[in-house]
């Protein structure tokens, strides 16, 4: 009897399916399954105890989790808005430069070239209450005569983290918006000037609508970035003091690897991924609408 042979399309697609299953599907299913177990790395047998939605129920009842969730949303809002404003400002300044624009564009990208871990270390050092340059400057300028506990007070620590996050990633906005400004035809701006617009009105009614899709692309990228923020916080405060700067992913990693409660951590991760999806969908909708608005051909 002749062995049955697989048809060519199946055969050709099979390697891709196998690889995808091995690296994506199986881990995903396993992690989903483990979020329904009290799985602890230290007690492997717990992997096989099925506890239904207990993990999810305890998450929804957990104040720590919701604080971390809220802080992440706050960081997203603060960081994205400020990065947008600063990036827009930077892009518009660089676009005005008639000489050395290439050099400026390169300089603008510098912060993106450093690992977030190093940015975290640098900012931790700068915000150090004893030897940090921030306190030093404030004191030298006579604006403060005490050592401000930047990384020890909860509110200030959040500010310091936002500063590091914004410093390292404003250029994402700046570069995408600059691309938009450079791609923009100049005549509508001139038409607006003739039509009676002040420089502010020209920006408000002509330049901004054109640049908006580019800002939304940056928003989408950065919302995913910030929603998974971990490295800078880990280095600067490690979620401290007393959990006052705990974000979703620092909490999840602490639960998973510190407390070894993998099942619970997986359940948290699934909930927080919803956050990322919500933001991404939101900005994609905005992007699509903005593209239609300017009649973009891309």
């Amino acid at each position: 009897m002749r062995p049955r042979r697989l048809s060519a399309p199946v055969l050709l697609l099979l390697p891709a399916f196998i690889v995808l299953a091995a690296v994506v599907l199986v881990p995903l299913l396993l992690s989903l399954y483990s979020s329904f177990t009290p799985f602890r790395l230290t007690r492997p047998a717990t992997f096989f105890t099925f506890i239904w939605f207990d993990n999810y129920i305890s998450i929804f009842a957990s104040r720590d989790f919701w604080w971390a969730f809220g802080r992440t949303v706050l960081l997203l809002t603060v960081a994205l808005n400020l990065e947008m404003l600063l990036g827009l400002g930077l892009a518009m300044l660089v676009e005005k430069a008639s000489r050395g624009q290439r050099l400026l564009r390169t300089l603008m990208m510098f912060p993106m070239m450093f690992s977030p871990i190093l940015v975290g270390f640098q900012f931790k050092f700068m915000f150090n209450d004893n030897v940090g340059v921030v306190n030093n400057a404030l004191q030298s300028l006579g604006l403060s005569n005490s050592a401000i506990p930047w990384l020890i007070d909860g509110g200030l620590a959040f500010f310091a983290i936002s500063a590091a996050e914004i410093w390292s990633s404003t250029s994402v906005f700046a570069i995408l918006i600059l691309a938009g400004l450079l791609a923009m035809p100049k005549e509508p701006i001139e038409a607006a000037r003739v039509d009676g617009c002040t420089p502010w009105q020209t920006f408000r009614y002509v330049t901004w609508p054109f640049v908006m899709p580019f800002a939304y692309i940056a928003m989408t990228i950065r919302s995913l970035d910030v929603a998974r923020a971990y490295d800078i916080v880990k280095i600067m405060t490690d979620g401290g003091p007393a959990g006052r700067t705990e974000l979703l992913w620092t909490l999840i990693s602490r639960t998973a690897y510190g407390d070894a409660r993998m099942g619970l951590a997986n359940a948290m991760a699934y909930v927080s991924i919803i956050l990322s999806i919500v933001f991404t969908v939101y900005f994609f909708r905005k992007l699509a609408a903005a593209r239609v608005q300017i009649g973009a051909e891309w």
């Binding site: 035809p185 005549e187 001139e190 607006a192 002509v206 609508p209 054109f210 608005q293």
Partner: peptide, 8 residues
Amino acid sequence: QSYALYPH
């Protein structure tokens, strides 16, 4: 020459 209409 290029009409310079506001696309949006």
